[in-house]
Design a protein around this nucleic acid. Structure first.
Lengths: 341, 341
DNA sequence: TTGTATGCGTTATCAT
DNA sequence: ATGATAACGCATACAA
């Protein structure tokens, strides 16, 4: 069962009656140093044989693979998928291919992922990971290749960084709720631990509440995955705090939390909008369909992905300079959950 | 900016005082042909230098890359992501890495994807694509590498195939509805065109209705993405057909359709369960949160992914024989939408 | 401008 | 059992 050994540069050279080097030059340096007639012959031969250079061999020889390694903490997260799509598009337009590595939320595998990808000579990395755990991606672990961080900063790693403008987004969400008459605010987030985006959002929330004091009161609740009781208690307490003229609202830190909150609301027999106002980070396709529709902060995921890829590719092309930070604005989508009936 | 040229097999050989061939043998043939003392020396040198073989060079030389190409029609589809996760796990356990290519629903890029992946010497393919369009994946396009199809069959391609047992799943869904007193059934699907899974489900639906005739009546509605009016009309007509004792129910062909139906229900002011019964293919995380909870057929996505990867890896290990078909059973998850109040 | 020779990091085929 | 050496497919100094 012989693999129909692919067409190589040698075949093209023979067909065109030139040397391999000449064919290689045609491929890489084109108009720079090549006589027109020879170039034409090579071109014809390539077309005739339907020749495609082997990226592997190129990578081995030239050191560049035109491969970009994308490491995601959890591919189950629609946010990551959306970013992936944006990055993918930008990469393809620039002639790069994306190699995906999914950590499956196993933070200790980050190093393993980097090594695996580095083995395939990826030219650079896009990292949407936690950046903590015993196997985090420090600069040296990257095998000297450039990287760009998405959504989550890593401690002690100063590289390009792309993300939603969390502070601005939180500000618009809080502003919207306060304007709508909500005075008792509860921000629910997954455990912050070292995750920068979660920290930033929580900090921004606190700042927003401060800015509106004493009209507005706010609290933060860290909701662990299995802590349904705690969540229920937090919501009940919120209801108790709310009085006439001081309505209560929940802000959810991401889509996962939104789902948990929606479950809890159903359990407790509470209605979005009527009983408790709501705005959540991440606008999912199902958001309009729950209750009166869930208000959300839609992230520019596609743009984030594109920006990340573009940043990285610029670096690959030799761009020097200090680490850049791209904070993209989100868009507040207002639905029934945050509009007083 | 010199890349810190990686540790090569030559370095190990020098450190161990042996030849490159010996090191290579230690890596690949281990105990077969190697004296214990030399093996120990090589092992020590490898550990000392922290040597890892270059997969690229291995691929170039040996012809195998330990890479599996996974082509997905649309990464936005949670089904595909779930399958991807299962496949990924199985691959990693077997020492393979998954290279993902997302078509972004551009069916004409299938050939391009295959070529790109083949360029990186992937050992085999897992295809979750349409298998039509002018650039479909026929056997010869695969460059002689084995492939396994997931969820969608390709015409004229006889390879291993893994999927949900659509007929069985449809039967259990219909049976459940009929048992619950629903008599007017409407199956809503995305345009079937050449997509085998959609065809199979529609066919199975017709068969189920036939089996229950004349007690039960059924119709199929093909719902194009932008045809909200058609969908609304179909639902209104369904309501009209329903009378006392002949309740109406909708079956949705996948999660996308479920979302569309949920939107339409909201538009028309209809309630799941009370006004119209519902069961949908694909059990999404948000299904319990819409209305009284949407009943669904949960696909064993993880198992499907694992099975696909396992099938492929078996072929890579030399397994011969005719194409296999793995049809995995779904699980009916009953919620409020299909239980008479 | 073009051809020759060498290296990239492995594996495999010969010898020894 | 081990070592030299030729592939694998390509890019690039260097020579012509």
């Amino acid at each position: 069962m012989q693999r129909p050994s692919r067409v190589t540069i040698a075949d093209v050279a023979k067909a065109a009656g030139v040397s391999k080097a000449t064919v290689s030059r045609f491929l890489n340096h084109r108009e720079r140093l090549l006589s027109p007639d020879i170039a034409a012959r090579v071109e014809a031969a390539i077309a005739l044989l339907d020749y495609t250079p082997s990226p592997m061999a190129q990578a081995l020889s030239h050191g560049r693979s035109r491969l970009i390694g994308l490491i995601v903490a959890d591919i189950t997260n629609p946010y990551s998928v959306a970013v992936l799509r944006g990055a993918e598009k930008a990469c393809q337009e620039a002639g790069y291919l994306v190699m995906l590595f999914n950590l499956g939320n196993d933070i200790d595998r980050e190093r393993e992922a980097i090594d695996a990808l580095a083995g395939y000579q990826v030219d650079g990395f896009i990292l949407n990971t936690l950046g903590r755990g015993k196997a985090l991606a420090d600069a040296e672990a990257l095998h000297g290749r450039p990287a760009v961080l998405v959504d989550r900063r890593h401690v002690g790693m100063h590289t390009d960084f792309v993300s939603l403008d969390n502070a601005l987004a939180m500000k618009s969400a809080c502003g919207h709720l306060v304007e709508g008459g909500f005075r008792e605010l509860l921000y629910i987030t997954e455990p912050q631990k070292g995750v920068s985006s979660r920290r930033e959002r929580a900090t921004a929330f606190a700042a927003c509440v401060d800015a509106h004091e004493p009209r507005v009161a706010g609290e933060v609740f860290e909701c662990a995955a299995d802590d349904t009781e705690g969540l229920d208690a937090a919501l009940r307490a919120l209801c108790k705090r709310a009085r006439r003229g001081r309505r209560a609202a929940v802000l959810a830190g991401n889509a996962v939390v939104t789902l948990r909150v929606a479950s809890a609301m159903a359990r407790l027999g509470l209605r979005f909008g009527a009983d408790i106002g709501f705005v959540g980070f991440d606008d999912a396709e199902w958001a309009p369909l729950i209750g009166p529709g869930l208000s959300a902060i839609a992230q520019p995921t596609d743009a984030i992905g594109r920006a990340a890829a573009t940043c990285l590719i610029e670096r690959l092309r030799g761009l020097e300079g200090p680490p850049r930070q791209l904070l993209l604005p989100g868009e507040l989508v207002v639905r029934g959950s945050s509009t007083p009936a």
